[in-house]
Amino acid sequence: MGPAVVLLVVLYAVPIVLDGYYSLTSDQFGGGGKFVGAGNYVAVANSGLFWRSVENNAIFTVLTVGGGTVLALGVALLLSGSFVGKGIYRFVIYLPQSVSFASGAVIWTWLFNAQNGPIDAALNRVGLPGPAWLTDPHLALLSIVIMSWWRDIGFYMVVLIAAIENVPQLLIEAARVDGARRFGVFRHVTLPSIRPAMLFVVLTWGLGALQMFTQAFIMTNGGPVESTYTVVLKIYNDAFQALNLGLGAAEAFVLLGVCIVVGVFAVRWFSRGLEHT
């Protein structure tokens, strides 16, 4: 256990401390950084693009996780219980989990392509106009949301199915005998019983959505007109394109702070859950 804990310190604690330190400098590649105090944080707070990224991230997270959780729950309900062929459906829906984000993003770049891309070709075939999915500023973020649903719903469906099938059958039958209808059983028995799993889904997916990078980098590179710029893409561009490590470090520190606040809340909930097992 010693080595694992040491590595956790080396790979988590030390980087965070280092990041905090470098966020106070004007460090560039090859050194030569000076102490600039809170300068980088002032620059972050005054950066319109940073706040635009925060806004995009917030919209992306709400759409992906909010919509996605409802969809995953719907699919999980559809494919649990006695249903012939549910195994095949589950397998197919889970299959995109085996595709890397980079591959998935590349494939959807082609699907969404406005020149001869398959989705628009299919829409044209039935007489509908094909929108410019990735180059229309009003649609680009939504297109990435759709791709992210495709990639991740299967994972959360499996979590929710496991929880749904763990609901004691006796409770469900008892509610039916009491005259509860299908929706009543769901509302008053299933939903309260799977609350821990729902929380797990929302938190894990939410933390993931706050980090969205690969899709934006590959599919749109933040465009059009910064409508898909995310916080991590901003960190990447500031630190590795503009080579301003200090500024990137400050932005990363802010992002980590948000994650830790969410994380502490999640761990407290988690440990409470563990006491019951």
Partner: peptide, 22 residues
């Protein structure tokens, strides 16, 4: 063990630049 659980909440992407600096 709480620390281990806390690391679950620090996704690799947020740690990429800090780890890069290290």
């Amino acid at each position: 063990f709480s620390l281990v659980l806390l690391t679950l909440m620090l996704p690799p992407t947020a740690l990429a630049l800090p780890l890069f600096l290290e």
